[in-house]
Simulated scan of single mutants.
Amino acid sequence: MAHIRILATGGTIASHSGRDGAASVGRAEDITASLSGRHSYSVQDITNANSFRLRLAEVRAVAEAVQAAVADEGVDGVVVTHGTDTMEETAFLLDLVHDSRKPVVFTGAQRPADSPMADGPANLEEAVTAAAASGLRGAGVLVSFAGQIRSARGIRKTHTVAANPFGGGVEVAHFVAGALHITAVPVRPAPLPLPGEDFDNVRVEIIVCALGTTPDLFSHAVHTGADAVVLAGTGVGNAGAGFAEAVQDAVRGGCPVILCSRVPAGPVVPAYGAGGGLDLVRAGAIPGGDLAPTQARMLAALLTSLPATQDEILQALTTGTSRNN
């Protein structure tokens, strides 16, 4: 029997339906009432909010709570309950700084706790099982949902209402008839430092490119004090007229620019001139590999708060891989 620390942050798994819509009102003790007892657990409330309302300060609090939990010799693994809207961001930030071999597993729910078809209890049971699994030691931070466990790096919410809303990343394991089957273990880069207080107030904006968009919003973000900008380009990482010049001005002024793609899957491949990815990189944009713009934003927020150099940001954007189990 393993001992698992469960850290609660709110979200749909802790929500109950009300006149004004679902609201996060449940405590950690409430959402753990259905656990089978195969493993022992302790619980801690970090915050209680729908994840679309979380700020960087709350994310830092979660990171600090996870670090304290894995440092406890009596804890074998950690589960974080979290809303699905921004789970990909918090889980990725924690994976960047996770320096223990103990598994950290995020989970949540798509239906409120008082729904007759509530999915939170089953998801929590599976997350606890994953956090207790010796075969997942060293796997870093994971996301467990509806019988599937994926790496935090690369994961995206790809559906608004599906039972399993997540895609991307690497499938690390899945459940068959209640049994955990491990299929891959992520190969992870060296951990980055935990965020400090400066992280709370970092400003990193995401600018999305579309047909005919101008660089006006991009330049506004830079000129009004953004610490970094993530440019979500079209296709393999392209942007329209004027963006290359705007990127060059931003980088020269000390504002790093990370080039991602608005496409749900696939890497940035600078291949086009005439303002495309080649020109953007030549102007100083850092290719974001296959990171989603939301995850690139979290990496940029952490690094610029440290602070980090342009070369250090480039090094940290090296895409992780996995080895087959």
Rank of each mutant, 00 (worst) to 15 (best):
A71I: 10
A246D: 00
M117G: 11
G225T: 08
G135K: 11
T318S: 08
L259C: 07
A69Y: 02
E64Y: 06
G288P: 05
T304Q: 07
L142D: 06
P193Y: 13
P287G: 09
G320L: 06
V204I: 05
A250R: 01
V66E: 02
T81W: 02
L192W: 11
R297G: 06
A226H: 08
A226S: 14
Q44A: 13
T224F: 07
V222H: 00
R53F: 11
A8M: 08
V104P: 01
D311S: 14
S322H: 13
F106W: 13
I286T: 04
L96T: 03
L211V: 14
L231Q: 08
G289N: 00
P264H: 13
R282K: 11
D95A: 11
V25C: 07
A65S: 07
T107A: 01
G212C: 01
L317K: 03
L314V: 09
H174G: 04
A271N: 12
D198G: 12
G83P: 00
T304G: 02
V185S: 01
I6C: 04
T213G: 04
A109T: 03
T129E: 15
A91C: 09
F52K: 15
G74E: 14
E73D: 15
V187S: 14
G83Q: 03
P264C: 12
D76I: 02
G288F: 08
L56F: 03
A71C: 15
V105Y: 00
V161G: 05
G225H: 06
E312V: 05
G196L: 06
A63W: 02
V187Y: 03
L192R: 09
G10P: 12
E64N: 09
L259K: 04
E205N: 13
G18W: 00
D119R: 09
A301D: 06
P287T: 12
G196T: 12
F199R: 02
T81I: 05
E126H: 15
H98D: 10
S144F: 07
T214F: 08
P264N: 11
G284P: 13
C209N: 02
A133Q: 04
A118E: 03
